[in-house]
Nucleic acid binder design. Structure first.
Length: 497
RNA sequence: GGGCCGUUAGCUCAAUUGGCAGAGCAACUGACUCUUAAUCAGUAGGUUGAAGGUUCGAUUCCUUCACGGCUCACCA
């Protein structure tokens, strides 16, 4: 033992010692009387003398987070991930054999204990153990107790360790779950039907993005992982389900950043007999309610800002370009935003990226993203988008170049995207053909043709409004997280070695 | 993909101008029956991310590679 300086070897030695003393190294179960949370709610308000008098015996279990041995006695803190509780183990209370077991315990071990609840001299609620139980051995040491685990790579690769030692991480994912639950409650209250549509698709449509490809062996066909939920959900609108939603994972074969993960969670919902104005109201109500339920307030701290969900803004994309145009650059006039030549000049003046094949719509969108997007901190609905960048949206009745579409921005991030759905199959076919032409010009993200979707529209789709909400980004906003990886338990990383 | 930065003990971090690789916690041994960052005494723990190069000598300087972070581009 003296020569065993390697830590895992020492732990394995202790595991063999457990076996030698007749303990099952991996016992099957442990009957506990209280979770640590139940201990807290039951006994936190009780006085030392009251506990002393009643001597209520409990059985508890959890992972050892710290130990303070003192010769023939010792204190141990256990945690169940939510709560901590102190155990006091005395040789004269548990007996010499059980005390030998206690001496084989390490930080990180999973143990059980039973005994009466009491308060120490410093008033700490504590179990005075009459017996301790070994439940599982920790063979790899936990991070240091007060600096903890901070290395981001290790935290992500070993999320289980991150969860053990960083309580804030668990709190984020509890909130994420709460957000999803509130969304379901909100939509279910409004008679939406939750459905599941194919992840494997022969045509990856519904968004402008590059898909992952895979192959089905038995059918010998290439398939794509879906990049959006949209086209199947609208087929269900055609099929007579007037309110429908799906909340699930989609996949985009694109870059990874603090705001992008290759797989992410999207809510899409579609509501027949409505237009995008109706969804603006619905979105504002839903997001505000979720923010309040999840954070406890309609004023939410995010980084250096306080997001005020009592004060939503609305403006058109064009208005946003004018409003946030940088003072240092000569402000354009309205007519400049209709002309390709002057739009290119404007794009250059603010360093907005564009391609020579871009029409006025794409150029406007690029201007908007460059000058306005990251200034949209407070909840802001930006509406009326160029038809050129929106192949599935219905145009405005008085303007064939503009569609009835809005996006919700919070904290400089696009959170939601919604529009009045194009339900004219002839026009939809023409839009797809325009996208195919763009694809031929080298635009890899242009929308593919989907003949069956055209056929579905040809059976007649009622006027419909639809919306997608990025759950990961919404969770970032409501948990004050600056990276999408803080709200995804196991984000994609390059494999080790 | 571009730019910048990082990688030293299980964890968190030092190491002066290129000159013997260190500390705290964790671990091990011993003392200690109300501690809580327990305390006290002692011990052990390293291919400094990998491979080359320069040098009498490299954690330190150079090159390449791996992985990561930030950021820009693309995207939601």
């Amino acid at each position: 033992m003296e020569n065993q300086t390697n830590l895992p070897e020492q732990r394995h030695f202790k595991l063999s010692e457990l076996k030698r003393l007749g303990y099952d190294p991996y016992p099957r179960k442990f009957d506990y009387s209280h979770t640590l949370g139940q201990i807290r709610t039951t006994f936190d308000g009780r006085s030392a003398s009251d506990l002393e008098e009643k001597k209520e015996v409990v059985r508890v279990c959890g992972r050892i987070m710290s130990m303070r041995p003192q010769g023939k006695a010792g204190f141990v803190d256990i945690s169940d991930g939510n709560n901590r509780l102190q155990l006091y183990i005395r040789r004269d209370k548990v007996g010499p054999e059980n005390f030998e077991l206690f001496r084989l315990f390490d930080i990180g071990d999973i143990i059980g204990a039973e005994g009466p609840i009491f308060r120490t001299r410093t008033s700490e609620l504590t179990v005075a153990a009459v017996c301790v139980h070994h439940l599982a051995k920790n063979l790899l040491p936990l991070p240091e107790k007060w600096h903890g685990l901070t290395d981001i790579e290790t935290r992500l690769r070993r999320r289980y360790v991150d969860l053990i030692v960083n309580p804030d991480v668990r709190a984020v994912f509890v909130k994420r779950n709460r957000i999803i639950r509130e969304i379901r409650n909100f939509l279910d209250e409004r008679d939406y039907l939750e459905v599941e549509t194919p992840v494997l698709q022969t045509v990856a449509g519904g968004a402008l993005a590059r898909p992952f490809q895979t192959h089905h062996n038995a059918l010998d066909i290439n398939l794509y992982l879906r990049i959006a939920l949209e086209l199947y959900l609208k087929r269900l609108i055609v099929g007579g389900i007037p309110r429908v939603y799906e909340l699930s994972r989609i996949f985009r074969n694109e870059g990874i950043s603090t705001h992008h993960n290759p797989e992410f969670t999207m809510l899409e919902f579609y509501q027949a007999y409505s237009d995008y104005k109706d969804l603006m109201e619905l979105t504002q109500e839903m997001i505000t309610r979720i923010a309040e339920k999840v954070t406890g307030s309609r004023q939410v701290k995010y980084r250096d800002h306080v997001l005020d969900f009592d004060n939503w803004q609305r403006m058109t994309m064009i208005e946003a370009i004018f409003r946030f145009w940088p003072d240092s650059v000569t402000k354009p006039e309205e007519k400049d935003l209709a002309d390709v030549e002057s739009l290119r000049a404007l794009a250059k003046s603010v360093h907005a990226p564009f391609e020579l094949s871009d029409g006025p719509g794409k150029l406007c969108a690029s201007l908007f993203e460059t000058v306005a997007e990251d200034r949209l901190i407070q909840p802001t609905i930006i509406y009326d988008y160029p038809a050129e960048t929106s192949p599935l949206s219905k145009t405005k009745p008085d303007d064939p170049d503009t569609v009835e579409r809005f996006e919700l921005y919070i904290a400089g991030m696009e959170i939601a995207n919604a529009y009045s759905e194009l339900n004219d199959p002839a026009e939809q076919k023409a839009r797809f053909e325009a996208q195919l032409a763009a694809r031929d010009r080298g635009d890899e993200e242009a929308h593919a043709m989907d003949e069956d979707y055209i056929r579905a529209l040809s059976y007649g789709m009622p006027p419909t409004a639809g919306e997608g909400i990025g759950i990961d980004r919404l969770t970032m906003v409501l948990t004050d997280s600056s990276s999408i990886r803080d709200v995804i338990l196991f984000p994609l990383l390059r494999p080790e070695q």
